[in-house]
Design a protein around this nucleic acid. Structure first.
Lengths: 232, 232
DNA sequence: ACACAATTTTGCATGTCGTGCATTTTTGCA
DNA sequence: TGCAAAAATGCACGACATGCAAAATTGTGT
């Protein structure tokens, strides 16, 4: 219940939809109240009242009060995975992932005002910022799995059996659909998440000097180049 | 009080030393109790009793109960920064950072048993794992600043004035000692932290197949090569 | 349209968490 | 040794978080 299973990210049933609506309403109420009165002045009772549900229901959706401030869009990571897996197979993994993330970030611009408030809340409450960072990374496991699957897929489309690198996308033993991601997949997922985070952070401090797209591109260029010492 | 200022990482005063001792005692008690009874069964009262202080004192050291499970060694990041800044100036930033981290990780092997317990606790409590991940990343700001400083330092040692890249280690305007880190410094700090985390995670799941040093080296090789699509 | 099963919401009771404040104890220093 | 600063403690109180059972809502089959 507390952990979205990814299937309901597209959600057809009326029930699922309503649940996601209440969850979103609670999160939005929490962010708006926190932006106005300060995060630690907002009680669960106030959030629940603003969302039109009981206090007890709040705890049916969030494990703790702070969780309501931490997650903005619970389904974002699922969408990124779908976009990544739908990318043309000949694209290098890093580029495919970059484009999938860029698409999602453009989509997020639509909710710009709420995101801005959310950023303000996190900036004024280091405690919550830490939780947010941790939550971002929790999504990595799923992304790493998708990367591993994509690598396996592009694998047998080329030529099947061959002596393979000792530890590429996924470990050799695998039930070909849900094997534990290998070192490369894990690392790529983690680095991509890091790239998003860093570019957002950097851009948030200088919204006027450069466009976000430029920062985003520069970060991925640096990564693709192997983080060389900065040219002088 | 709650945030170590880095100065007391080396700690000369008796007062500082005792504070760090009690803090360490509380953290260790928390981890050991959690490893035995499960994290959510451990009350603050139990932790405080095991460490020989009052409940109220516990909250003088930690903002919340969970914080006691999250941080293992509060001074580790400070030591890494020192080691990084002490590295020979001709080393590329990525390699200097890699070596500084490797040294700290070798040092951490000394407390292997406690670290192992801590890992078990985090694995059995996703809630705490997320907090731990977030806490790791909170150290990045300091590291990014150190990187920016090092880049500036190696800068005027070579040849001073020249048309510089628009956004290298640090933004142009800087009070030459505590300027906000630039995009490159931020990214390098973040990626390095990610590298440690991913290598540890990956190795923890396969402690027998390969040595940690090998995983660690492979990760940094992949990063230095720009995360190329895995060879087949 | 209607009833029924499944799911969700809600109120209540209970225990723990977390903080402010005044007081007592400890520590560093002259 | 005596004194000022810092830390530890006890206490009180509000908020958080969970289990449980009753009430309300939704989807489905007839």
């Amino acid at each position: 219940m507390h952990f979205m299973t990814g299937k309901d990210a597209v959600g057809g049933g009326l029930r699922e939809r309503k649940k996601r609506a209440t969850r979103a309403a609670l999160a939005e109420a929490a962010v708006r109240l926190a932006a106005e009165h300060g995060a630690d002045q907002v009680t669960v009772e106030a959030i629940s009242a603003a969302a039109g549900v009981s206090v007890r229901t709040f705890f049916n959706y969030f494990d703790s009060r702070d969780d309501a401030f931490v997650v903005v869009d619970a389904d974002a990571s699922e969408r990124v995975r779908q976009a990544f897996l739908a990318a043309p197979p000949e694209l290098p993994p890093l580029e495919a992932l970059r484009d999938a993330l860029a698409a999602e970030l453009r989509e997020a611009e639509r909710q710009h005002e709420l995101w801005s408030l959310h950023a303000r809340v996190l900036r004024s409450a280091p405690h919550l910022l830490v939780r947010n960072l941790g939550a971002q990374m929790a999504d990595e496991s799923g992304l790493a799995e998708a990367i591993a699957r994509r690598i396996r897929a592009g694998d047998d489309s080329d030529d099947a059996g061959r002596a393979s690198e000792p530890d590429a996308g996924a470990p050799p033993e695998g039930d070909a659909g849900r094997a534990a991601p290998g070192l490369y997949a894990r690392l790529l997922a983690a680095v991509a998440g890091t790239a998003v985070r860093v570019s957002v952070q950097h851009w948030c401090e200088r919204p006027d000097e450069v466009s976000y797209a430029d920062v985003f591109r520069e970060v991925f260029d640096l990564l693709a180049a192997g983080l060389p010492a900065p040219a002088r």
